[in-house]
């Protein structure tokens, strides 16, 4: 799809994707009460953590990783429809090559433990808690319209380098799906593997001491029932993974992410 046929995407000076042509619940304006802190986005540290905890990027050196990230940034910067994304936080990630047969099991057995190891290594006094005690097996599928299937397909073929943007702030999940349809074709709603990989690389993504950070939904994935979603959320200085009813509603506290994958 050509971006020439689309209205220019509007990202504000903070990188928030402004809702255009969205009918589902969304906050048209934000008072920016819930915010991310200023986590260090250091490619060397990210690459080291991804290798240590997720087995990703092991054949990459920092310069190559940085070049590949910069290439994604350059592509976004070159398009007026996406340049504003770079006003906000962008978290580089690598998802290792893995044929995905079952999303929930892979999240539960591979990615969430990796997030836990990275978080508790960085913050030994704090905890990562997966509150979903009844398991994830068979409960997560790609959300129709999210474009997230492209990551699942790509990671079956090769290791995937990308950037995670928590920029759909104060959108309901249906609004995020609507919004992604109006954005350039190479942007997809973030789901489980990309968001978790972002947390492995930047474990303090939701750490804030002077105020409250947002909750980050895995909007590229649908839960086992309509209206149920899965998310990462801070609790004090701790990090949690949980599920809850969203029922298509919006909240200042609820954000979704967009992933941009490199094209090779």
């Amino acid at each position: 799809m050509s971006t020439a046929t689309l209205a220019p995407a509007a990202f504000d000076e903070f990188g928030r994707c402004l809702p255009t042509a969205v009918q589902s619940p969304v906050h048209r304006q934000s008072r920016r009460y819930f915010r991310l802190g200023t986590p260090a986005v250091d490619p060397a540290a990210i690459l080291a953590r991804l290798g240590r905890h997720l087995g990703a990027g092991k054949g990459l050196d920092v310069n190559s990783f940085t070049r590949r990230i910069d290439a994604i940034r350059a592509r976004l910067a070159a398009d007026p429809a996406t340049a504003g994304m770079l006003n906000g936080l962008a978290v580089p990630f690598i998802v290792p090559r893995t044929p995905v047969t079952e999303i929930g099991t892979l999240m539960e057995e591979g990615y969430l433990p990796a997030v836990a190891r990275s978080f508790e290594e960085a913050f030994p006094a704090e905890r990562f808690t997966n509150h979903v005690k009844l398991g994830l097996a068979g409960k997560l599928t790609v959300q129709p319209g999210s474009r997230h299937e492209r990551l699942i397909e790509a990671m079956g073929d090769d290791e995937v380098v990308g950037l995670y943007f928590p920029c759909l702030t104060e959108y309901s999940l249906p609004a995020a799906v609507e919004q992604i349809a109006s954005l350039p074709d190479h942007l997809l709603l973030a789901g489980g593997f990309d968001t978790a990989a972002a947390f492995v690389g930047v474990p303090d993504l939701l750490l804030r001491t002077d105020g409250y950070p947002p909750l980050l939904w895995l909007t590229g994935l649908a839960g086992e029932k309509p209206g149920i979603g899965y998310h990462f959320e801070a609790y004090g200085h701790d990090l949690t993974f949980n599920r809850r009813a969203h029922l298509g509603q919006t909240a200042e506290y609820w954000w979704s992410g967009i992933s941009v994958l490199e094209t090779r």
Binding site: R31, F34, Y212, L215, R244, Q249, E252, Y253, W254
Partner: peptide
């Protein structure tokens, strides 16, 4: 809406 903080105890606005 869901929020993690105390509205009357913590939200200055």
């Amino acid at each position: 809406p869901h929020r993690p903080d105390c509205l009357i105890g913590e939200d200055p606005q």
